[in-house]
Amino acid sequence: MRREVPLAITFITGFLLIIGFFIPHDPIGGLQSMFLQWYAIIAGFTMVLGLMTLTRIHTRRIVKRTQGFGYSVILIGAMLGTLVVGFYSGIKYKGLFELGTPFMWYYNNILVPLSATMFSLLAFFIASAAYRAFRARTIEATLLLIAGVLVMIGRVPVGNLIWNKLPIIAEWIMNIPQLAAKRGILIGVALGMIATSLRIILGIERTYLK
């Protein structure tokens, strides 16, 4: 019961999704689109689960007064604040992202700066990582270094000032050798994805049941 039912559910839903692609007519096509909607609904509930887990972890920290519990207070406060502002804006105004809603203010002045700055910080760390990784010790490492440097220089105005062919070379690297390897990797990834999906549908891969 604890294993058989989930295995049967996985088999039926997975199989129906594949069949639905080849027979897009009712009732299979209808069932397929209904299952996809259900999938989106359940995905919404998983967000609730994520929030519940996060709240539980940080509430425990606050209750036990562990070191840095004040940050947990900030996290839970931010979470509750976003929820209140989000639901208030979503219910009171026509849409969540309507201009002038409190949620849009929150989104533009808190979420966007935080996420953009957090990712921009990576520019510094990626540069120090490059210093360590880009050492022309072997032919492969040299190729990595040359391709990286050419793409970086070729994509900024100073590259064009140094030599007007640099942007063309950078573009060529992106469109030909980079694309070739990426295409090979993508096909490989897709084959792996299909093999894993088949293993899941047929019940060979069961690690998700643990």
Partner: peptide, 27 residues
């Protein structure tokens, strides 16, 4: 596990279809 099984089934089904039609054939 029932709902996880459902999402896994859907994900696997989409994985096969998307793998063939989204990646292998066009690439």
């Amino acid at each position: 596990r029932w709902s996880i099984a459902f999402t896994m089934g859907i994900g696997a089904g989409i994985g096969i279809v998307a793998g063939i039609h989204g990646y292998i054939l066009p690439q």
